[in-house]
Design a protein around this nucleic acid. Structure first.
Length: 607
RNA sequence: GGCCCGGUAGCUCAGCUGGAUAGAGCACCAGCCUUCUAAGCUGGGGGUCAUUGGUUCGAAUCCAAUCCGGGUCACCA
C-alpha cells in the first residue's frame, strides 16, 4: 500500500501540491486554481531540477514575478523537506531537489518489479486487433496493426485494466471465394504440404491468380466491343466467384468443405506468423459466425422508430442531423451489409465480457465507418455504444504509394521478419560479437534483435500518422532503435555479471549505503528520468499511444550511455558511489525491460 | 463539394492540456577504445515550426482563414 501511494506522488505532483499550499498560505485572500500551476523540468542550461513558472501568478497576486519567486522559494525551502536551494531566472523559479530525495527514491525502487504498474481495478476492456481477411497472408500494414494492438493491450493491463485481446477474422465473403475459384480452376489439388509453403501464402497466391485471370478476361471482353463496366460484371471468373458465394450462403456442402479446408490452411499460416510475432489472443471471433448478427438490433430500431424503411424494404438510418449521411443497414432483400454485422458483433462482445470499453485497432480509412457505428448504436440505445473507441492508425505506404495485395505490391510480413533477422545476424557477425554462444543462443539472439528492431520501427511513430516504408533501405539498427535500448541493457547486465550480482539484487547488497557525496549531473539526469516512468506509462494508456514508451525508453538508454561513459561503476571512486550507481543501473535495466516488455520487445543480457 | 487527419532540419520523427535560446535519430564533418560491451560517447554545421491574421505578459502548441498532401462520403468489406 505504501508503495502504491509513492507511485501516485510523483515529484512533480509533490511540487505542485507544495506550491499550491504555499500560495494559499502566503496569499490567503487569493483564489487559486491548481490548474494554473505549471511545473517543468528545468532546462539544462540553468541550475535546478524542476521549475515553477511564475507568470500565471503575476496578475493574481499583483506582484512582479521575481518577487513572487523569492517569497515562494523561501517558503518552500523552509516548510518542505524537498529542496536544497532555488534560483530565479526571469520569471522562472528553479528548484533543486535534495540529493537525499533521489537516494531514497532509488533505495525504495531500484529492484521493484512492480514499479510504475497500477493496482488492478474492475474495468474490462477488449482490444480487437489484427482482424485479417483469410484470402491472403499478412503484410507490413498488418504488422503495424498487430504490434499496436498487442502493445495497447499490455499497456492497459499495466495500468490495472482487465484486458481481453480479441481478433475478428473475416473468413467469409467474396474475397475468399475468389481464392477458391482460382484454386479450383488452376491448383490441380495443390496443398501447402505438396507445395511446401505456408497455407496463407498458398491461398494468397490463388487470390493473385484470380485477379490476373480476371484482368485478362476483362481485356478479352473489351476486345469484343463490350464496355469496361460491363466487362467487369460479366467476366466468367467473377461470375463463378459470385455463384460460389451464393452457394456458400445457401450452405452447399461441397463449397463449405472447400472453404473450410482453405481457411484451415490460412489459419495454420497465421498461427505460425502470430507465434513468431509473439502476439496472442484471448478470444477469436469469426465473421462466418457473426455476419448474421445485428438484424435483430435493426428490427428493434425499426420498431423504436430510430430507423426507417424505403420503398424497396431496405432499412436506413438518417444521420444527417449529426453532419453525416443516410446509411443503409439492411438490403432490400433483407441481407446484411458490413455495418449490420458490426452492430451485432459490438453487442456480442459487450455481452460476452461485460465490457466497459471496446477498443478497435483499425486503419484510419475506416474513421467514418467507426464514427457511424458508434453513433448508430447510441441512437439505438445500446449500452455498448459509449465504450467504443477507435484506435485509428495511419496506413503504411511504400514510396510508390499504397500497397495493393491485388497487384502484388505488398511487403510480406513473413519475408520482412526473415529479412530483419538476417540483418541482425549479418551485423552481429560484422561486429565480431558471436563468441561464446551456442548455435541455438545465436539464433535466439538474432531473432531478439531483428524482431525488436521491426516492432520498434512500427511503434515509435504516433499511431495516427501514416508511415512510408522504403524497402530499399533496410531498417536501421543504430540510433533511435530497439537495438540501442537492447545494447544499453546488455551493458548493464555485463556489469552486474562481473560484480556477481543478479539482475535484481536484494537489499542485503546495499545495507551499508549512506549518501554523503553530491550526486553528479549525469547520475541525476538518469535518476530523474527513471522517476518519470509511472507518469509516462500512465500517459501512454490515456493517450492510447505506445510510441511515448519508445521515446521514453530511448531517452533513458541515452542518459544511461552518457552516464556510463562518464562514470565507472566497477571502479567507482568509493563504495558509496559504487552502491549508488549499482542501484541506478539495476533500476535502469528493470525499467527498460518493463517498458519494452509491454511492446513485446525482449532485451538480451548479452549481445 | 461535405466531413476527418496530417504539414517542424536534406530524410525519418519528438515536442502540441500555451512558458526560458524549438529537440532526437539518420546522413555529413571533427574528435574519443592499454579502463565496466565503440551496436557507444563528445562536439560541429543544418530551421520563415506550410502561409496570413487573431487571442496572450508569452504561440510550433489555442482560434480563424488560406495553401499543399492524404482519407472518406457504396444495397464493397
Amino acid at each position: 500500500m505504501r508503495k502504491i501511494l509513492a507511485y501516485i506522488m510523483t515529484i512533480v505532483t509533490q511540487i505542485k501540491l507544495a506550491t499550491e499550499e504555499a500560495i494559499q498560505h502566503l496569499f490567503p485572500e487569493t483564489d487559486l486554481k491548481s490548474a494554473t500551476i505549471t511545473i517543468n523540468q528545468t532546462k539544462p542550461e540553468f541550475k535546478g531540477d524542476y521549475t515553477v513558472v511564475l507568470f500565471p501568478f503575476v496578475k493574481l497576486l499583483k506582484q512582479k514575478p521575481d518577487a513572487i519567486g523569492k517569497t515562494l522559494g523561501d517558503y518552500l525551502l523552509e516548510k518542505t523537506n524537498l529542496f536544497s536551494e532555488y534560483g530565479i531566472v526571469s520569471g522562472f523559479l528553479n528548484l533543486s531537489i535534495k540529493d537525499e530525495y533521489w537516494a531514497k527514491f532509488l533505495v525504495n525502487h531500484y529492484n521493484d518489479t512492480q514499479y510504475g504498474l497500477k493496482a488492478k481495478e474492475d474495468v474490462r476492456v477488449m482490444v480487437e486487433y489484427s482482424s485479417p481477411n483469410t484470402n491472403k497472408p499478412l503484410h507490413f500494414g498488418h504488422l503495424r496493426n498487430i504490434f499496436l494492438g498487442f502493445a495497447m493491450a499490455e499497456i492497459l493491463k499495466a495500468n490495472g485494466k482487465q484486458v481481453v485481446k480479441g481478433n475478428l477474422i473475416n473468413d467469409r465473403g467474396i474475397h475468399i471465394c475468389k481464392s477458391m475459384v482460382a484454386w479450383m480452376r488452376y491448383a490441380d489439388g495443390a496443398t501447402p504440404e505438396k507445395r511446401g509453403i505456408k497455407g496463407d501464402h498458398l491461398v494468397g497466391d490463388y487470390y493473385v491468380k484470380f485477379n490476373d485471370v480476371y484482368k485478362a478476361e476483362i481485356a478479352e471482353l473489351k476486345e469484343k466491343g463490350i464496355d469496361e463496366a460491363q466487362a467487369e460484371k460479366e467476366a466468367p471468373i467473377m461470375k463463378e466467384a459470385q455463384a460460389l458465394l451464393r452457394q456458400w450462403e445457401a450452405g452447399d456442402k461441397g463449397v463449405r468443405d472447400l472453404w473450410q479446408m482453405m481457411n484451415s490452411w490460412v489459419y495454420e499460416g497465421f498461427d505460425k506468423s502470430y507465434k513468431r510475432l509473439g502476439v496472442d489472443f484471448d478470444k477469436v471471433y469469426h465473421e462466418s459466425d457473426t455476419y448474421l448478427l445485428g438484424k435483430t438490433i435493426v428490427e428493434e430500431g425499426l420498431q423504436k422508430g430510430v430507423l426507417f424503411n424505403k420503398e424497396d424494404g431496405s432499412v436506413w438510418v438518417d444521420l444527417t442531423a449529426d453532419g453525416l449521411d443516410q446509411k443503409l443497414l439492411l438490403r432490400g432483400d433483407g441481407t446484411s451489409v458490413y455495418i449490420t454485422q458490426d452492430l451485432g458483433t459490438a453487442k456480442l462482445k459487450y455481452e460476452d465480457y461485460k465490457l466497459d470499453q471496446s477498443i478497435y485497432v483499425i486503419a484510419d480509412e475506416q474513421n467514418y465507418h467507426m464514427q457511424v457505428l458508434k453513433l448508430i448504436l447510441k441512437k439505438l440505445g445500446e449500452p455498448c455504444a459509449d465504450g467504443i473507441y477507435h484506435l485509428s492508425y495511419g496506413m503504411v505506404e511504400l514510396p510508390t504509394g499504397r500497397m495493393k495485395s491485388r497487384e502484388g505490391t505488398v511487403v510480406d510480413a513473413d519475408d520482412m521478419m526473415d529479412e530483419m533477422i538476417n540483418l541482425a545476424q549479418q551485423q552481429t557477425e560484422e561486429a565480431g560479437k558471436t563468441e561464446g554462444y551456442t548455435a541455438e543462443e545465436l539464433k535466439h539472439l538474432y531473432e531478439t534483435i531483428g524482431m525488436g528492431a521491426l516492432k520498434f520501427y512500427l511503434l515509435r511513430v504516433d499511431p495516427k500518422k501514416k508511415m512510408i516504408f522504403n524497402p530499399q533501405e533496410s531498417i536501421d539498427l543504430h540510433g533511435f532503435t530497439a537495438t540501442f535500448i537492447q545494447y544499453a541493457h546488455a551493458r548493464i547486465c555485463s556489469i552486474l555479471r562481473k560484480e556477481n550480482l543478479p539482475l535484481l539484487p536484494d537489499n542485503r547488497h546495499f545495507q551499508s549505503f549512506r549518501l554523503s557525496l553530491p550526486i553528479a549531473t549525469a547520475e541525476k539526469n538518469l535518476v530523474l528520468a527513471l522517476e518519470q516512468y509511472p507518469f509516462i506509462l500512465e500517459g501512454s494508456a490515456i493517450e492510447y499511444n505506445p510510441s511515448s514508451l519508445c521515446n521514453y525508453s530511448f531517452l533513458v538508454a541515452q542518459l544511461f550511455n552518457t552516464f556510463y561513459d562518464e562514470h565507472s561503476i566497477a571502479k567507482a571512486e568509493n563504495e558509496e558511489k559504487k552502491q549508488l550507481r549499482l542501484m541506478m543501473i539495476v533500476m535502469t535495466a528493470e525499467v527498460l525491460r518493463n517498458a519494452m516488455h509491454l511492446l513485446g520487445i525482449r532485451l538480451p543480457e548479452k549481445m
